[in-house]
């Protein structure tokens, strides 16, 4: 019994550590995807301005509160607008942004294939 008990404790500790490392990872990931609004073209992660430092803390707190990555993004979007997100969301405004490169790729492929058909 005692053995199992100790094992359980160790397991929880290990598990906790694992979770913590995971949290830091998501924290960094989120910070990398945010623009530091008062800097010139830096991400929140890269910046050491007061704003960025506070924002990193907020992200950390929100993760500990159990918010998901998406929830944190939408929270910050509500506070600061879309300008803060480096990864533009797919909506009416960014429709072309995401689709146009793919269209160009397909068009290029079509032109190349057409050349071979014309030859025949």
């Amino acid at each position: 019994m005692k053995f199992i008990h100790i094992f359980l404790i160790i397991a929880t500790i290990l598990n906790f550590n694992f979770l913590k490392a995971d949290e830091i990872k998501t924290e960094n990931k989120i910070a990398k995807n945010l623009r530091c609004l008062i800097c010139q073209g830096q991400s929140v992660y890269d910046s050491d301005s007061e704003f960025a430092i506070s924002l990193k803390l907020v992200i950390k707190n929100k993760i500990q509160e159990g918010l998901s990555e998406e929830q944190i993004y939408s929270f910050l979007k509500m506070k600061y607008g879309e300008w803060i997100l480096y990864d533009p969301v797919f909506n009416r405004n960014t429709y072309f942004l995401w689709v146009l490169p793919i269209l160009i790729f397909l068009a290029g492929g079509a032109i190349i294939i057409k050349r071979f058909y014309n030859k025949k």
């Binding site: 007061e50 704003f51 430092i53 506070s54 803390l57 506070k79």
Partner: peptide, 10 residues
Amino acid sequence: GTASIEWGAY
């Protein structure tokens, strides 16, 4: 500075 972020401050 976290409360200021909640206000959307820069």
